[in-house]
């Protein structure tokens, strides 16, 4: 299929299904993260995007979720069905994870230096001196100034932006092939958000790793990501190169998200808002397209047929029976 010279994708998920609790069942969905790419997953509350992060990192069980079916290949290695031990070894040195609300996930009573040393020891025992040198290197990599002071600091002595940089440095400890960041900028001020995203991009380009960022903010993601994946109610409804998705959205929900953005709408004019609210998880079992109740393009077919993903442009897919009308609208 692909020429032998191109490396396998870092993540290739096919027909992947995962769940948490009785009602929230995500997928089946496909996701490809090419080597060295930055992929943005956008979705609203309850779309399943945070669970997706957990699925990709093998961390669903830690929050009571499970991987239920399909294929999940990490650099060619099948990890669907892997047990905790195999996941741990797959993650070690290869997958970094920045959990949501990571601003509060630093230990408040331990200095940054001690926390970094602990993480460095987990990924390969080194001497204290080697750990300290590596910690300093990583903090410099995330562009923190006055590294010795940061190492001596407690988390509360750092600003939100600085703490998020420390979290990034911690996720980079094992020089991962893949970094998964769940809402890395949500709690930050607008100016700091932009800086953290640019930093992620620069670190990604320098190291050649792949990055998956999850966010509710399509605009921010599109400022740094190569590929955009749009999730709605537990499904991937559209995916493709950022420029194509923005210029030529082929799923009505993507189109609606762009139209809802005040930054893209002339000042003082009504936004073309998406009516209604996302379908709650306990109604996902009903037949048909989950976006149909809010969709201006919906017809009777949409309430009976679950639309399969279809190619809509090179590298782009959308799960909509009416994507041609959406593109033409």
């Amino acid at each position: 299929m692909s020429p032998a010279t191109t490396p396998p994708p870092v993540i290739a998920a096919r027909e992947l299904r995962f769940s948490i609790g009785e009602t929230v069942a995500i997928g089946p969905l496909d996701l490809t993260v090419p080597a060295g790419a930055m992929v943005g997953i956008v979705g609203e509350t309850g779309s399943g995007k945070s669970l997706m992060c957990r699925a990709l990192t093998g961390l669903l069980p830690s929050i009571g979720g499970s991987l239920d079916g399909g294929s999940l290949r990490f650099e060619g290695e099948e990890l669907a069905g892997a047990d905790a031990r195999r996941w741990a070894s797959a993650r070690r040195g290869r997958i970094g994870f920045m959990p949501q609300a990571s601003l509060s996930s630093l230990n408040p009573v331990r200095r940054i230096g001690a926390q970094m040393r602990e993480t460095l020891r987990l990924t390969g025992s080194r001497s204290r001196g080697a750990c300290d040198r590596r910690a300093a290197e990583l903090l410099a990599l995330v562009r923190l100034r006055d590294v010795p002071r940061v190492l001596r600091s407690y988390p509360h002595e750092l600003s939100g932006g600085m703490r998020q940089r420390v979290m990034l440095a911690l996720a980079l400890v094992g020089e991962p092939r893949l970094l998964v960041a769940d809402e890395p900028t949500t709690a930050l001020d607008a100016t700091i958000q932009a800086e953290v995203l640019q930093l992620l991009r620069q670190v990604q380009e320098r190291s050649g790793m792949s990055v998956v960022i999850v966010s509710h903010d399509l605009r921010s993601l599109s400022s740094v990501c190569d590929t955009i994946v749009v999730m709605y109610a537990g499904r991937v409804v559209e995916s493709g190169p950022t420029a194509t998705v923005l210029a030529r959205p082929s799923h009505p929900y993507t189109r609606g998200l762009l139209a809802s953005d005040p930054a893209l709408t002339p000042r003082g004019t009504p936004l073309r808002a998406i009516e209604g609210r996302p379908l709650p998880a306990d109604e996902w079992g009903a037949p048909g397209c989950r976006f149909a109740p809010r969709c201006g393009f919906a017809t009777a077919d949409c309430t009976t047929t679950d639309p399969p993903p279809e190619p809509t442009a090179p590298g782009t897919q959308a799960a909509c029976l009416h994507w041609k009308e959406v593109v033409g609208a």
């Binding site: 562009r143 940089r165 607008a190 932009a194 640019q198 991009r201 605009r219 400022s223 950022t242 930054a263």
Partner: peptide, 25 residues
């Protein structure tokens, strides 16, 4: 800075790797 962050969001869809990142202090 605030306006730059706004324009970064409002301008599709270039990848801006050229812009220097201010060091955080």
């Amino acid at each position: 800075r605030l306006v730059d962050a706004f324009h970064m969001r409002a301008t599709p869809p270039a990848v801006r790797t050229d812009s220097p990142i201010e060091e955080q202090r």
